[in-house]
Design a protein around this nucleic acid. Structure first.
Lengths: 155, 155
DNA sequence: TTGATTGCAAATCCTTTGCAGGGAA
DNA sequence: TTCCCTGCAAAGGATTTGCAATCAA
């Protein structure tokens, strides 16, 4: 996964970039991929797969739910989009203690979880909540990526 | 939602606390709720609803999936458990730009999202990844709680 | 006795997958 | 022509819900 600077990227440039990246990966350019990228980049903030499908439908772009999901995954791989996790479905649970909470570096390849302690997080949270007059009940912080083992294995 | 210090809490104390909190909320004490709390607190690290059901089954505790879900939700409300979000299901997407990324304070009552910028997060991530020889591709950070509007509304 | 709680099964929601047809290279 | 990509429909997994029976208070 690579990072692309999309701050000033217009539709034309984005499409060109997409074509280029697809070619590099020996994947094909299709109208669906192009349309989904256009719409994803036109969206401010975050969106769900189904939002995109609905918007495309209203614009007369015919595509399927399966393609949306496959393409969004692809656009993440190519570095156009990121996944954002809100806490909605498929949850894990953990007991609450007064031990310092641990955060996780999660390897998206092998699933390994490296635990780390981050005392700064508590301070940051406190400050943020004070500033916004927000009463925190919980937070989540996770880092996703490739662990050293997997990085070595793929070389 | 309240925070309970469970670091030195044994089964007895936890059960007593549960009974007390249930009473305060005019909810009933049941063997299922007790068993689920016991098992949840006996678990190191995090677990899923189905994990718990399986463990209870092996221990001869008869309960249903529906009760597990309902009770875990309750135990979160009562402050015994927290929800942990890993990035697995029901994702949102967001385009990648070079603008500083914003994090969210999410009101669990009204759904309002307050955006904040946190330059420190990038530094923290860099340090963590360096320490653990981890190649980050993404992260998530969200704070959950009650926004000022909802806090006022409920007074 | 009363109504909160349970278990079951069905429903729901989001996502993935198998497969045959269509289209890019 | 090749075989990647699509759409459909079915499958999948996690979670929620309606309802009748059960059980705590």
């Amino acid at each position: 996964m690579q990072i692309i600077n999309m701050s000033e990227m217009n539709v034309e440039v984005a499409r060109k970039k997409l074509a280029e990246l697809l070619k590099k990966k020996k994947l094909r350019s299709t109208v669906e991929r192009s349309a989904i990228l256009d719409e994803a980049l036109a969206t401010e903030g975050h969106f769900e797969a189904d939002d995109l499908l609905a918007i495309l439908k209203t614009k007369g772009v015919k595509t399927s739910r399966a393609t949306i999901y496959r393409t969004l995954e692809l656009l993440c791989d190519l570095g156009f989009l990121r996944k954002v996790c809100f806490r909605e479905a498929h949850l894990h649970f953990q007991k609450i203690t007064d031990e310092p909470r641990r955060e996780h570096l999660i390897c998206t390849n092998c699933g390994a979880q490296i635990e780390v302690q981050l005392p700064q997080i508590a301070e940051i949270n406190q400050r943020l909540c004070a500033e916004s007059d927000f009463r925190m009940t919980d937070y989540c912080f996770n880092i996703f990526g490739i662990c050293s083992k997997c990085a070595k294995g793929n070389e």
